[in-house]
Design a protein around this nucleic acid. Structure first.
Lengths: 220, 220, 220, 220
DNA sequence: AATGAATGAGACTTCATTCAT
DNA sequence: CATGAATGAAGTCTCATTCAT
């Protein structure tokens, strides 16, 4: 029972086979297999859902024997739990890159919202991984939620002030963040599912969201 | 494989055995078994989740043999799909009863929000049924969403105007409704789960929600 | 998960299909399957050992599907643990029947010894079941040991006195009983294993045993 | 697949690294690894039983890679088969050392019996290795039995005569030896297993044994 | 000789569904 | 209609052994 602990970062990306003359060292090959397994799992879950993500299916797509799976992950669940947190961090990084720090708070929020759906298009498997994780990978789901909420709350706190984020207590901001995350999740379920994975969401989704953010829903 | 389709309405309520001298007719007896199965399924799913809601468990709680299940439902999934729509309608009715039609739009929205969480407390199994349905009973989930969204949108449309719901197109209102439903869902997952079922949510959840509805998040 | 508890007695005997006109009732059929499974397990263990007694093999020999096994036994181990105690009781009964109560203590002990090996010939699977149970079915082994030791000790106590069982304390008699059981076990391993199961043991095995019982090994 | 046969003698003893200046020759180093594997296997089997003695566990305790195992032993079974014969010989030597050649036959037998249980205390892994070997290492078990029986029979033959071993044919003596070995085995199973390995057996075990040896069980 | 990742057969168990009674 | 034993597909995981490095 080899524990096989290693940083779960930088997984997924289908290892761009290094272009050099030397053969891959043993440890490189090893990491490569682990990456392939992770990537295969993401694809399978993205396409068929967690329930159908059997070890047999994952290893087949990764091109290794079933037993090999257990050289890299303690059990099936262990891998499934990592899926969302790891890809979720990639999403955060993706959104971060899109952000113009000199923009207004409102513009920044708009960018974040839009970038979320752009990431969905770039990483089609994310949609299903995100939406099923609560049930099939509850620990990973919680971890992901914490990851996102923490940094989102921090961001909003920094934005408080004139022309920025309104008058909310810290506790209330945490609630708001959950509302905003919930909004993204529900909207993605309603508008982003297409034939074969994700599709762009209509413009009025964004305009509605921004109106709510800027003015609320019901006037005084 | 008899399809066994019948109106899924008025199920669940554990039939208050009518006190009268005549013995129940055959069809009434049948309905009773069907109701018991439905009710048992709701309880099992509410307590253990869809994944653990085996036919064996449901029939055991209902006090009938496994085979009996298939005299009333075509298969396991068929029952599971009905769970959310049926109980969801009960939720709608519950909220409707709480509504004071003479109140302002803002007050009415507050009542709706609060009533949602009150219903969770009254019907503890709903929390889990709602939150897992997307994955385990996607058709029922969709149906429920449509049910809710349709009437919610209608309500908001009626509320449009001075001092009421703001300037949103019809399409945008549909988006808003999904945001608001998403908010309830996420907030219930984050704040309503307690030891054994649902628990009251803290006050700042409601205050944050109402601030967002009334003023938006980020000032102009 | 049906517990399926029922008296484990009267198992094994390959149900002598009842000769009568009426069809077997449902419960009779049920018991029949359980008996067939038990009997098949005994045969498989007797021939190939516990390690090779897979559920697949047992159910195949019993002529039922693998899943059927779990309608009658909670799991594989549960059945394996019952094998030795049940057949062990049959052995006790067998030996009892051979005993002439009017004989002398020494003659009775000789009869018991001989009958043990006769039972081995009649029930060839017993040899292996007995000899592997300590490792593969430790609970059943313990139960069997207790069964045998208890009644054996009782018997010897009754035999104490002039011309009968010698001067041993109760504790010492328990030790003696374990020695005698150990002797049977070891001798069966050494002398009773044949090509295909059990074979008769040579005469000098019995004569040596009886000399030891009657006179001890080493003179004063 | 190199067969790797070599004298299994003098294994186990955790090589007291000789203190000398020269570094160990290659073959000495090899032997060291082999000894470490053997010793590790004995410990693992002694503590967890043969069934849990996976190659992974053995090599881990020995501090070598799994593959290394197969440079020293053809396969897992091959090592397991050697365990009992090798340690069994150590037991014989241990008992031999305790024996006072000038004592009476009866005293010598008492010493042998006692020394067996003393060895169990000194070498705690032996208990389990001995008692499970029949099932998991049948060839080694047979070899051990032959080793012991041969020398035991020889000893008893020498002791025949006035005041010594009684009137038994050679064949019968072999039977007696199996009875005596069986007694030790059963008694060790019943009385020597303690919390963590072997424990001393009560006095009445020895007294009962000696009474049987000296006088038999049932009077004429 | 040492390494240790890869292999793949095979074991146990669950459970939705069927169907004879 | 009710019953509940039987079915059998499918899934997870273990581990002795191999072999390229």
């Amino acid at each position: 029972m080899p524990p096989v602990k290693s940083a779960p970062s930088a997984l997924l990306k289908t290892s761009p086979r290094p272009k050099r003359a030397t053969k891959p060292t043993r440890s490189e090959k090893n990491d490569d297999v682990k990456r392939r397994l992770f990537s295969a799992a993401a694809k399978v879950v993205g396409r068929y859902g967690y329930a159908e993500a059997s070890v047999a299916r994952i290893t087949e797509l990764a091109g290794v024997a079933q037993g090999t799976f257990y050289n890299h992950f303690g059990n099936r669940q262990e891998l499934l739990e990592q899926l969302l947190p790891v890809i979720g961090q990639q999403m955060v990084a993706f959104i971060q890159r899109k952000l113009d720090q000199s923009a207004s708070e409102l513009e920044k929020e708009q960018t974040r919202f839009k970038a979320f759906f752009d990431f969905l298009l770039e990483t089609p498997e994310f949609l299903r991984i995100l939406n099923e994780a609560e049930v099939y990978a509850p620990e990973g789901y919680q971890k992901h939620l914490d990851n996102i909420a923490t940094s989102y709350v921090r961001t909003l706190k920094r934005g408080r002030g004139a022309g920025g984020v309104g008058d909310f207590t810290d506790e209330e901001l945490e609630v708001i963040v959950h509302i905003l995350m919930g909004a993204r999740g529900y909207l993605s379920r309603r508008y982003a599912y297409g034939e074969a994975g994700a599709q762009p969401v209509p413009d009025h989704v964004q305009s509605a969201y921004m109106k709510l953010i800027a003015n609320g829903l019901i006037g005084r």
